[in-house]
Write a protein that binds this DNA or RNA. Structure first.
Lengths: 231, 231
DNA sequence: CGTCCGTTTGAACTATGTCAACGTTGGTGG
DNA sequence: CCACCAACGTTGACATAGTTCAAACGGACG
């Protein structure tokens, strides 16, 4: 109780907590952490991937509904309220949970509405952000992929085969490059971010500000339909 | 400040708050409320549907990232901390937000992995739960549908045409029945819940406990693949 | 009574899952 | 040290659920 915040270190592959563990809140100090959800049939889904600064776990009084696994060596801080700052503490937790809700909502739209290429670009963009933490992304930067293809597929709710094909496509198109499977060199950050956001490949920059071309509208699995514009 | 909780009433179609409104937390007392997310192209997505007891909005210090619209006449209570009970208040908010995260995660898996029929059954089950609130569901009960087909499609991330077809199918198969589009009579609660959970139609009960039939495993858009069982 | 929007139904298309075969890597045991 | 094996990743061929386009129907509202 008089130990308001303690530090813990984990190796890659370690579990920070398991489903059903007694509740606790953790703040990631360094490393990349994955939230998994076990299925009845023995499979599992990757719900979220978090980097430094994120809050994982549930507040006391409940049980953990998911498992948290370290993808890289990681340092986490256990969060607990002090006697004095209990109000700002819980307020802060509420705010951060609320922010994570928004993040999860974005992912849901991604996974439910966007096409497969956009989804992968989305994940790559997120991994870039986790890597650089503030620094502006530069083309040519190397992004580690702490997840296997299978985990990526689970995260994006795609089949591993599709993920594999997508990587090949992105490389063919020159957006990324890689030798090993556990990291990619981002050749064209701009195109990648554009793909993540709009689901389309922007016609290469050379286009000399041609204003008259048919406006590019967001495209996913949906989005090719005339919008009713009224609803 | 000395007004810790105030009651507000809304008519169907009213907005409780809009995107960008100053933050506030509301507890739904009665009625059905929908969370919408506006898109760049003028369309919108239905993120969640809530009934009495749910918490909507964000804690002070942020801006609303979504809009909340009443589908039926509704009564909501504005939540604000008292001087005395600030700690339990924020603690409670954190816990309820955390619980909603789990709920949203379930929906994400639904929308990303389950097939269209399962998704609709999922929504119908949720609407049943919102209606009855505790009372055990009975076959033959009448469930109001406060959402249009288009909104249902948006919620489930399907096209309206698909939703329409699904309703027709469910009626053909005798799980539900309806004359108007704004309510359904649930003919077979059991089958509907089974569909929502497993994605399959249970062979009608008559099956005389035939143990030797190929075990029904969960089926969605995925799930027909041999599980690696190892990962 | 006519128009309009939401719903329904039909037909065709496409993205993505499934199945299957092959290559590569890393670990294990002879 | 090398042979073998098991995962994982890649690629191809095929199947299909769900979107898209199109047209017809119905109720609501002027």
């Amino acid at each position: 109780m008089n130990n308001p915040s303690s530090i813990q270190c984990f190796a890659a592959g370690d579990l920070i907590f398991e489903v059903g563990s007694t509740a606790a809140l953790y703040e990631i100090q360094s490393g990349v952490v994955l939230l998994r959800h076990r299925e009845a049939d023995g499979g599992h889904h990757v719900l979220e991937v978090f980097g430094p600064g994120a809050l994982v776990g549930v507040p006391p009084g409940q049980r953990q509904s998911v498992a948290a696994e370290c993808l890289t060596p990681a340092v986490v801080r256990t969060l607990a309220p002090d006697q004095d700052d209990a109000v700002p503490f819980w307020r802060g937790v509420a705010e951060r949970l609320s922010a994570q809700m928004s993040q999860l909502q974005r992912k849901m739209l991604m996974v439910g509405r966007a096409g497969a290429p956009q989804r992968l670009a989305f994940l790559l963009a997120r991994l870039m952000d986790i890597q650089i933490l503030g620094t502006p992304a530069a083309s040519g930067m190397d992004v580690p992929l702490p997840l296997s293809r299978v985990n990526i597929a689970n995260y994006l709710l795609l089949s591993p085969e599709t993920v594999s094909r997508l990587f090949s496509d992105l490389r063919r198109r020159g957006l990324i490059d890689y030798q090993a499977v556990d990291s990619v060199a981002v050749r064209d950050v701009r195109a990648l971010r554009h793909l993540a956001e709009f689901g389309t490949l922007q016609s290469r920059p050379p286009a000399p500000s041609d204003d008259a071309r048919p406006r590019q509208r967001p495209r996913g699995r949906f989005g090719n339909r005339r919008q009713s514009l009224v609803a």
